[in-house]
Amino acid sequence: MNGEAMRDQWYPVGIAAQLTPAGRDSLLLGEAIRIACDSDGAALVTDGAGRALPVITRFGHVWTTLGQPERDLFTIPEADQPGRRLVDVGTVLVRCSPLRAVENFLDIAHFPFVHTDILGSEPHTEVQRYEVEIRDDVDEVWATKVSFYQPQAAKSAQGGINAEYMYRVPAPTCSVLYKTCPARPEEWDVITLFVQPLTETTCQVWPWMALFDEDSSMTDMIHFQQMIFVQDRSILENQIPALLPLDPGMEIPTRADMTSIAYRRWLKRHGYTYGAQLVAA
């Protein structure tokens, strides 16, 4: 298998509140798994041979691994602040590399064209310089001081704002976005993209959010995020090649793509290459 290092990672495989004793079949890194719960509602994940896999329940989702992770699943301390509403957005299957799904989540330049009049609009297309680093102490990719003009940044936003963002990649198929919170300017909304790699070219995407928003209904918040993600889906299923190219010659980045450049470099450094293409075909 491409990307052995990715076996030793935690992956989302279901919404904790929606497990059933009957369970359901799925894939993880191309291998069969089954997700169910016991009579007390506790998550049970088994591999193709019926052996129990390690389980963590966090951020409203069930996480498992096929390998031996050196570290605990990452945390999002901000999400524990009182007053946040935790939103299980649901899941969508996408025929794309799990790594392409994360890279798209890290990208802002597509907002005016793919999320038109919601997260961006012409002529406000310019991406200002921002800061990107691979934080060696925590081994995460971070992009900070990102800002972009948005006509309707969140369900709770009225009219356009210059939204501020921070992006964090704590695991190869997970990203956390901290974004201007319209209801509480001093806090960040937390919007995540958790990706379950089914195969190298198909993935199950589980967005999750922890928001300060007292006005919107839960359903409205879910629908807003589903709308955004499904707008991306038709892009993600039409990129060639389907695998994320790590060969620098294959695709042409610009300054607006610094987060993606750092993400690809970090993937390559760690051998997180399940869903990646190392040399041009």
């Binding site: 038709s234 892009i235 060639i240 190219p245 294959m250 695709e251 042409i252």
Partner: peptide, 13 residues
């Protein structure tokens, strides 16, 4: 070629 050199998106879209 039906491929944007930037991110590989199909130009026919």
């Amino acid at each position: 070629s039906d491929r944007c050199p930037h991110r590989g998106m199909r130009l026919s879209h």
